[in-house]
Amino acid sequence: MNADGLLERLTAYFPVMLQGAGITMLVSSLAIIVGLALGACLLGMSLANRGTGPLTWAVTVYVSFFRGTPLLVQLLMAFYLPSAFGWDMPPLLVAILVMGLNSAAFQCQILRAGLAAIPAGQIAAAYSFGMPQRKVFWNIQLPQLARAVWPAVVSEFMDVVKNSAIISVIAVADLARVTRQIFAANYRPLEVFLSAGVMYLLLTGAVFALGSWVGRRLQHRGGRGRRIGLAATGASHV
């Protein structure tokens, strides 16, 4: 294979792939934010009324649906069904919304796993102070459990970026679509798909780096707060 030709071709692909990568990152970052925020809300809702009541049931149905059906099916439904009722949603918005809603279901369950990391005594103490359940969730439970399961949360962020590779079925020109078009024009699968792979690796790597930095900041803040909190309650374990 002609090495000079290869470098030329790679530099030719780069700006086109960068355009596609821009769309991928736009959709992914917004979906990540929506996913985390909504996931936290869903967890809060499911803990209302001490885990009984209609809100908990609603969250269970939501999570079962979005975790139990393929993302492809969710995207196609959200793209084709609304127009039957006269709604017109631009494809980019549909992609961000569906990926956000999908990620929220997974984030809800990931965050739920962090509940075990909070000593039960804190919750009891908070309620005995007369704190409303919503305040207990957002001020006491969420910061601590997020800290505990943050690596898994960041892993879900990276999954969002990778899952975004199918949004081209609903008319969004992302990195995967652009890659397929380059391949259709020059029939060199190894270098084209390898370049795309490297780009996705860079994107998920950036998400991981940013997520880890945030995680370290959380640990740092949490560490000091935790020590003060423990000292106040006179806890004997660390």
Binding site: L76, F79, Y80, L81, S83, A84, G86, P91, S168, V169, I170, A171, A173, R177
Partner: peptide, 17 residues
């Protein structure tokens, strides 16, 4: 102009997408 896979072209027209 929306670029979708061929299998979604006619169904999309039918659902007024």
């Amino acid at each position: 102009q929306m670029d979708v896979p061929f299998q979604g072209i006619l169904p999309g027209l039918a659902t007024k997408r």
